[in-house]
């Protein structure tokens, strides 16, 4: 398989098929990052499109000595965050409830077992999902990259442009912030 870097090089030379191939290779991961940061399907699709348009425009800035994937994912993270700030819709952010219920109903591992336990787990999942979306976007991004996209610390460091040690610190802080947010939410609802 042709490397991403070679495809990028060919795309720069005007080979639009090479660019299309890059889009096909990365559209899922880009969309996944964007969706996890912004939490809305339609917004995520629009922002993903913006990411690839930015890629098309800025491809000449790509350093061929470096890996293509972290560079593109970094564009995805930055575009998502700036789009969020531009729209100032952080307040209304939440994972698409309709999708969550569809996804939940389609999960094979929920098909079996105690329905009561399934429901409990689903509620906890929703609670955590909401709390994640209430976090500052830098924490949300780290959690998405680490736990939902399962990137390694080195990959996250490359995407965020920080050191590997710094990633570890950010992950820890994000997790503590998440717990704090969950606790606060529960206190506000009088659960604890």
């Amino acid at each position: 398989m042709i490397s991403d870097e070679l495809l990028a090089e060919q795309a720069l030379l005007g080979n639009i098929a090479a660019f299309e191939e890059l889009v096909n290779r990365y559209k899922k991961s880009v969309f996944a990052i964007v969706y996890r940061i912004c939490g809305q399907y339609q917004d995520a699709e629009d922002i993903s499109q913006e990411v690839f348009l930015t890629l098309f425009e800025k491809l000449y800035q790509f350093d061929r000595e470096k890996k293509f994937s972290p560079w593109l994912h970094r564009i995805a993270v930055n575009t998502s965050i700036s789009a969020l700030r531009k729209k100032k819709n952080i307040i209304s952010l939440n994972f698409d409830e309709s999708f969550i219920s569809i996804a939940f109903n389609n999960r094979s591992h929920f098909d079996a077992g105690d329905p009561h336990l399934m429901l409990e787990r689903e509620e906890l999942r929703k609670e955590i999902g909401s709390a994640i979306m209430q976090l500052p976007e830098s924490y949300r991004t780290v959690i998405a990259l680490r736990y939902q996209m399962e990137f390694s610390n080195q990959e996250i460091a490359d995407i965020l442009g920080v050191s590997k040690d710094n990633v570890e610190v950010k992950v820890h802080r994000a997790r503590m912030a998440l717990r704090k947010r969950i606790l606060n939410n529960r206190k506000e609802r009088g659960i604890i």
Binding site: Y35, F99, Y147
Partner: peptide, 9 residues
């Protein structure tokens, strides 16, 4: 739960 919290459409 974090991993499950955001299934991707």
């Amino acid at each position: 739960l974090i991993k499950e919290a955001a299934d991707i459409p």
